[in-house]
């Protein structure tokens, strides 16, 4: 069975990518499962989708824990533990990243034994909230890496999944997918089918007798204020607002009042400070700042600059 996981952010089309690949497998006579995984995550938050394909009916269900192929549409997620991109990867897993950086850089950075590839033509618009054609490119590349899906089936699947879009948009998607498919030719078939878990040799589940606990402990209640600050929603951000303090007029904290997330704090002197651990990158502050003192910087650039400083 092939087990493929697509990682991206809410809004980047990972569900569509998984469906394109699922349909292509299906057209080739495979039994298929494809599904997105939803949580409470919103636009920009890390999400994933997955595809299983086999010649035999598929009994396995749910999240893929040991993938044969992992595709990452947004390279800023690779290092984010909460995104779970690297979960369950082994030396047999192929990792395909939509990135400007080379496979060697990633191999070095991740210290991974896996086969690491990058999409030859990364799609990186300024705002990563939407990567319009990344899904198609990822699916196209995946088809080639799997080696069992000819281009004709991939194209048919793509047109089927995107049928409701404008014709020009469909054509661009097809072109991007085709390019990715062709450029992956040297790696054709590098993904190998994973094996089933063995019943003869397995790690037992280590069940526990669930201890009885009184309601004061076991009720679904939180006995502390504002614990949500531990959730780093800054991970969702694809654009970063940066305050130019020379231009900031120390106004009547417009940015702070309008920030839906309480992520701009103003000190006693009237100086606003953005809490990047929690700023989701909505950019309302940029739009509302009276002296236009807040700039927009792509998050991946900002992070690259920060990385450079280290």
């Amino acid at each position: 069975m092939y087990r493929i996981r697509f990682h991206g952010r809410g809004g980047q089309g990972m569900k569509t990518a998984s469906r394109m690949l699922g349909s292509a497998f299906f057209a080739e006579g495979f039994e298929v499962q494809d599904a997105p995984r939803y949580g409470a995550e919103r636009r920009g938050a890390p999400i994933f989708a997955y595809v299983r394909a086999d010649r035999a009916p598929i009994n396995e269900r749910g999240i893929i824990r040991q993938p044969d192929l992992v595709i990452v549409a947004d390279d800023s997620l690779v290092a984010v533990p909460a995104a779970g991109v690297l979960g369950g990867m082994t030396s047999d897993t192929v990792l395909l990243i939509n990135s400007h950086e080379s496979p060697d850089t990633w191999r070095h950075r991740l210290n991974a034994q896996s086969t690491i590839l990058v999409l030859p033509e990364p799609f990186e618009p300024e705002d990563h909230a939407e990567l319009p054609y990344a899904g198609a490119a990822c699916a196209g590349a995946a088809a080639q890496l799997l080696g069992v899906i000819p281009w004709a089936s991939m194209e048919q699947a793509l047109r089927h999944e995107l049928a409701e879009l404008a014709p020009a948009v469909i054509e661009t998607n097809v072109t991007r997918a085709r390019t990715a498919f062709e450029r992956m030719e040297p790696h054709r078939g590098c993904v190998r089918e994973g094996r089933a878990v063995s019943a003869a040799d397995y790690v037992p589940p280590n069940w526990v007798e669930v201890p009885f606990e009184a309601a004061r402990i076991s009720a679904p209640a939180i006995h502390a204020p504002a614990t949500s600050v531990e959730v780093k929603t800054g991970l969702w951000r694809t654009l970063r607002p940066v305050i130019d303090y020379d231009r900031c007029s120390r106004c009547w904290w417009v940015c702070s009042s309008f920030c839906p997330d309480s992520a701009i704090n103003v000190d006693a002197a009237g100086r606003p400070e953005i809490d990047y651990d929690h700023c989701k990158g909505c950019m309302i502050c940029v739009a509302q700042c009276p002296p236009h003192a807040i700039e927009t910087i792509p998050e991946h650039d900002a992070q690259a600059a920060e990385g450079g400083k280290e």
Binding site: A40, R43, P225, E230, P260, D261, M283
Partner: peptide, 25 residues
Amino acid sequence: RMKDLPSTHLLGTGTPMCAGCGGLE
């Protein structure tokens, strides 16, 4: 005036509401 509004905010950060949510605002 805007200046008369509270400058510190009580609602904690880190909620799962969408970026730019008008309801959360």
